[in-house]
């Protein structure tokens, strides 16, 4: 067997949390690391294996409701992995991944399930599914605008232990309505990070978002931020020449017209 790679990216439960193609994030991270001369490997950890606790970065993707509950149970069962997630490794979680790392998760039938508790946030169902393009301004240094596609029914309220990943410029995001649109006389969860046009959640170990795309394929600066956090190296060049189509892709998604149209059309659909 050859020497172990310098950077190991563990994709957790791609068989259950692979509905929205978020495993592409691992491909992006590994390739960008290799372009910088870092030997990176991807480890797919399916539900029928016992998970390794030694990965540098763990990825969780989006999945269907039944799979999500199974994933919580699976992660809670594997204690060494859980300890690695909370004490040592970095985690990048998308959509269902964000929800299962929270403290509680209420399903569509109104049943409340406990999450993994790695992130101080709770998720309850929205009345209508949030589907469409999203643009946010990321709070992480040097990352800038984020583009992605959201497709979820969660309204996520952040506690004081986490910061939002970004400010929503278009789209829904965490799904608690912004202050200006809240009906008068009703109390909403209060506090600096309790929704109001925000998206995702960040702690010093975890970056979580609702954005698909895959989000790291559309936002190389976020991929490089994660890589530099895991490897401790800085990457000054956010857009290396290796991906010639990226500027065109970002121009297309960050120009204001197409996402708005997509959002409007999604409201017209009866299902």
């Amino acid at each position: 067997m050859s020497a172990a790679p310098e950077l190991v990216i563990g994709v957790l439960l791609p068989d259950l949390l692979g509905t929205y193609s978020d495993a592409g994030n691992a491909v992006v991270l590994a390739q960008r690391a290799r372009w910088r001369g870092i030997d990176a490997g991807i480890l797919c950890v399916t539900a029928d294996t016992s998970p390794p606790a030694g990965c540098d970065l763990y990825l969780l993707g989006g999945g269907e409701d039944a799979a999500q509950l199974f994933a919580i149970e699976w992660l809670a069962r594997h204690r060494t992995l859980r300890r690695a997630l909370s004490e040592r490794a970095s985690t990048f979680a998308v959509c269902a991944g964000l929800q299962i790392l929270g403290t509680t998760l209420t399903d569509v039938q109104g049943r409340c399930h406990g999450g993994l508790g790695l992130l101080d946030l709770t998720t309850a169902p929205r009345r209508r599914r949030a589907v469409g393009e999203v643009i946010t301004r990321c709070v992480l240094p040097g990352v800038g605008l984020l583009t992605g596609f959201e497709n979820h029914r969660g309204a996520t309220t952040l506690g004081i232990g986490v910061r939002p990943l970004g400010q929503v410029l278009s789209g829904v995001g965490n799904g608690v309505p912004p202050a200006s649109r809240r009906p008068a006389g009703r109390t909403w969860p209060v506090g600096p990070s309790s929704g109001g046009g925000i998206e995702g959640a960040v702690t010093d170990r975890v970056v979580a978002t609702y954005l698909h795309g895959p989000v790291l394929a559309r936002n190389p600066a976020l991929a490089d931020y994660l890589l530099s956090r895991v490897t401790g190296q800085g990457f000054p060049d956010p857009d290396p020449p290796e991906v010639p189509d990226l500027p065109g892709l970002r121009r297309g998604y960050l120009s204001p017209t197409p996402p708005r149209r997509a959002r409007f059309r999604s409201h017209l659909k009866p299902w």
């Binding site: 592409g24 491909v27 992006v28 390739q31 394929a217 559309r218 290796e242 991906v243 010639p244 189509d245 990226l246 065109g248 892709l249 297309g252």
Partner: peptide
């Protein structure tokens, strides 16, 4: 219309 998405995917592949 989404050739850039395909192009980015192909580069990473």
């Amino acid at each position: 219309e989404h050739c850039a998405d395909v192009g980015v995917r192909l580069t990473y592949a």
